[in-house]
């Protein structure tokens, strides 16, 4: 089942990566892009301060940016897929201009559109998302391929010295669906209540 990556090691598996990144998450605020990253985040543990997306393709990084600007003392992690990231490439430029230190973007890159029949994405043809992020002004941007790089990535996400970008190469095997709640208003309300307290329902 395990694939072998280009450097000869065993390919990273998406669920293990997400579970490791979300371990002991502390104050971390999380946005999970639509499709498999949302299922991965849910499998790691549904949480009121995780906002899983069922739509808005191409918008995950911008949601993270709005959140990071609103909550400058909290670290924000966007976990999304390569297809979702490609649809919102311009948002990397927008983050590069805004430069919030508390924002991290992790792209789980399996080089395919997994939800629609494993069609290849642009990254399968060599489009380098990490280089794009670096060129847009992210202070750190790397391609992650090995297990031993995940713990340092988690530490960097919590260090708040971003904006940080990581393109994590993962195997393209499909995992069982683990679905988060679907009601967007409920997801929003529980997030705001957990973050802001009772004022979440009275402030306007």
């Amino acid at each position: 089942m395990a694939e072998v990556n280009e450097t000869g090691g065993e390919s990273l598996q998406r669920r293990e990566v997400v579970k490791a990144l979300l371990a002991d998450r502390g104050d971390l605020l999380v946005v999970a892009g639509l499709g498999a990253p949302a299922w991965d985040a849910t499998e790691a543990g549904d949480h009121p301060l995780t906002f899983p997306l069922w739509g808005g393709m191409g918008g995950a990084v911008m949601i993270g940016l709005g959140l990071a600007l609103a909550q400058p003392t909290r670290n924000v992690l966007v976990i999304t897929g390569d297809g979702e990231m490609l649809m919102g490439l311009g948002s990397l430029a927008t983050v590069g201009v805004t430069r919030p230190t508390n924002l991290s973007v992790v792209v789980l890159d399996n080089e395919v559109y997994g939800e629609t029949g494993q069609q290849k994405t642009h990254t399968a043809y060599g489009v380098d998302l990490a280089a794009t992020a670096r060129a847009c002004g992210f202070v750190a941007a790397s391609v992650v391929t090995a297990h031993e790089e995940i713990a340092p990535l988690r530490a960097a996400i919590h260090a708040g010295a971003g904006p940080l970008f990581a393109q994590v190469k993962i195997s393209s095997e499909q995992m069982p669906l683990v679905l988060p709640p679907r009601d967007g208003a409920q997801l929003k309300n529980r997030f705001r209540e957990a973050l802001l307290g009772a004022v979440a329902h009275t402030a306007a």
């Binding site: 808005g56 191409g58 918008g59 911008m62 709005g66 600007l69 609103a70 311009g90 948002s91 402030a203």
Partner: peptide, 23 residues
């Protein structure tokens, strides 16, 4: 905070994150 967008749909997504964070 003035946020320069590359395309307008970014501003819609930004608003979702801003509101989640209380802005």
């Amino acid at each position: 905070k003035l946020v320069r967008l590359t395309t307008e749909e970014e501003g819609v997504a930004l608003a979702v994150g801003a509101w989640l964070g209380g802005d």
